[in-house]
Design a protein around this nucleic acid. Structure first.
Length: 181
DNA sequence: TTCTTGATTTCCT
DNA sequence: GGAAATCAAGAAA
């Protein structure tokens, strides 16, 4: 993790989230690298965000959200999928950015094999983790120290803010950031 | 201890 | 457009 990225992740989540767009997310699983360009993320806060896992305080599942910025938080969604977040802000103030989608950059064939199909490889939270081979063993690891790394990429031409998806609380907050097509 | 719900995806009609 | 798959946190009792 470069100093520039470390500094970005130490900022409040609403500033860090859009800054992640366009960056390259890379994983190395069993010596096989795969990477993609982030195109869609969502910001999640702490006690003041009713939609966040951390809004009722620290629990066993959300503990990584309270750790250092740059920590990876992986959790199981609907009993089937994995969703991956990057912790931002300061220690003790739970904030994280949900990585929702990306465009394959490297290792496309491997991602297609993992996904079992050649289209819609990483255009959703659960799909992104499956394509990159992310699972529970990555939970709590630090970017660049485990299997997951974040590198600077092409800055997006235009960032769009819109309401978050798939939640039932605080839906009016426009904390979803994506790159305009 | 039991019940409900979810930061989802995929397949079927 | 609708439903199933499937597990764990959180709420209720």
């Amino acid at each position: 993790m470069t100093p520039a990225i470390a500094q970005l992740l130490s900022r409040p989540v609403l500033e860090a989230a859009p800054g992640l767009l366009g960056m390259r997310l890379t994983t190395v699983v069993d010596g096989e690298p795969t990477s993609l360009r982030l195109t869609e993320v969502e910001a999640y806060g702490g006690a003041d965000d009713p939609a966040s896992h951390a809004h009722r305080g620290r629990t066993g599942r959300n503990a990584p959200m309270f750790a250092d910025p740059g920590t990876v938080y992986v959790y199981r969604s609907y009993g089937i999928h994995w969703c991956v977040n990057i912790v931002t802000g300061s220690v003790g103030e739970p904030q994280a950015v949900l990585l929702r989608a990306g465009e394959p950059v490297e290792g496309l064939a491997l991602m297609q094999t993992r996904r079992g199909r050649n289209d819609h490889v990483a255009d959703g939270p659960g799909k992104l983790t499956q394509a990159l081979g992310i699972d529970a063993s990555d939970n709590g690891t630090i970017l660049g120290e485990g299997r997951i790394s974040l590198l600077e990429g092409d800055p997006p031409a235009e960032v769009v803010a819109s309401p978050r998806i798939g939640i039932s609380r605080a839906t009016s907050r426009r904390w979803r950031f994506s790159i305009a097509p």
